[in-house]
């Protein structure tokens, strides 16, 4: 039997089952908490820090996606302070690499862009890092442009947990962190990639995209899920 807890988020009384997270309960009740690394159906990692909330009685902020609810919990999901932090974190993601929306396949279909808009991020104050980053277009169906990667690692998790291929992983650390295929070989040479396209489907930005799409034509919502499975199956004569 599951126990149901009642708690309060932003002054609203809400209820959730014992294994639910603050984020789950908030979303069920129409309280929107911005997220980027979270994706329903795969393991959470609490890394993007956008969903940080205040919990009464704790002096530290905690990620809503990884905080299990408890009875009587009082959560502040929106405050001026949290808005400032969320804006700053979104800004950091923008200036960390080279996000140029005007030439991006995901323009207008980008979760990073949406988040910035939602949070009212209008300009950048923080220093731009502008690193030199590579593009890997060796795969015959897809490309990865690391300039647009925000290291949410949805691709890594979906590849491991849903597809079961574990083609994607991460290498290096700090600012040099990159997602990689197999042991850092070009994507096109990967022997484990099944070309299922799940990683492309889940990528919140235009980092992973389908080849042949023009600027702003990288919509992921208005097409059937994983059409490439069909392509690959046909190629293999299945």
């Amino acid at each position: 039997m599951t126990t149901v807890y009642t708690l309060r988020i932003d002054g609203r009384d809400v209820a959730g089952s014992e294994d639910a997270t603050v984020l789950d309960v908030a979303r069920e009740n129409g309280i929107d908490i911005p997220t980027l690394c979270h994706l329903d159906g795969i393991t959470d990692r609490g890394a993007c820090r956008l969903c940080m909330v205040e919990i009464t009685g704790s002096n530290k902020l905690t990620p809503a996606c990884m905080t299990k609810i408890v009875e009587g919990m009082e959560v502040t999901a929106h405050s001026d302070r949290l808005l400032e932090y969320r804006r700053a974190i979104t800004e950091m993601l923008f200036v960390e690499r080279n996000h140029i929306c005007a030439v991006c396949v995901a323009n207008n279909h980008c979760e990073l862009q949406d988040t910035a808009e939602e949070l009212g991020l209008t300009h950048f104050d923080l220093p731009r890092i502008s690193p030199k980053v590579d593009i890997d277009a060796s795969h015959r169906l897809f490309s990865i442009d690391h300039n647009r990667c925000i290291l949410c690692l949805r691709c890594v998790r979906v590849c491991d947990e849903i597809e079961g291929a574990h083609t994607w992983d991460i290498m290096h650390r700090g600012l040099d962190t990159r997602v990689q295929t197999d042991m850092g070989i070009p994507w096109g040479e990967s022997t484990t990639c099944t070309s299922c396209g799940k990683c492309v489907q889940v990528c919140p930005t235009g980092a992973l995209f389908e080849k042949g799409r023009a600027v702003a034509r990288g919509s992921k919502t208005r097409r059937p899920f994983l059409p490439w499975m069909k392509v690959v199956a046909e190629e293999r004569g299945l």
């Binding site: 890394a47 993007c48 950091m92 200036v95 960390e96 700090g174």
Partner: peptide, 20 residues
């Protein structure tokens, strides 16, 4: 910034920006 593991945004990006 050299030792940041790169997992969370504020440390990965923020430490470099503070250093800059």
């Amino acid at each position: 910034r050299d030792e940041s593991c790169g997992k969370c945004t504020p440390c990965r990006v923020g430490t470099t920006q503070m250093w800059m």
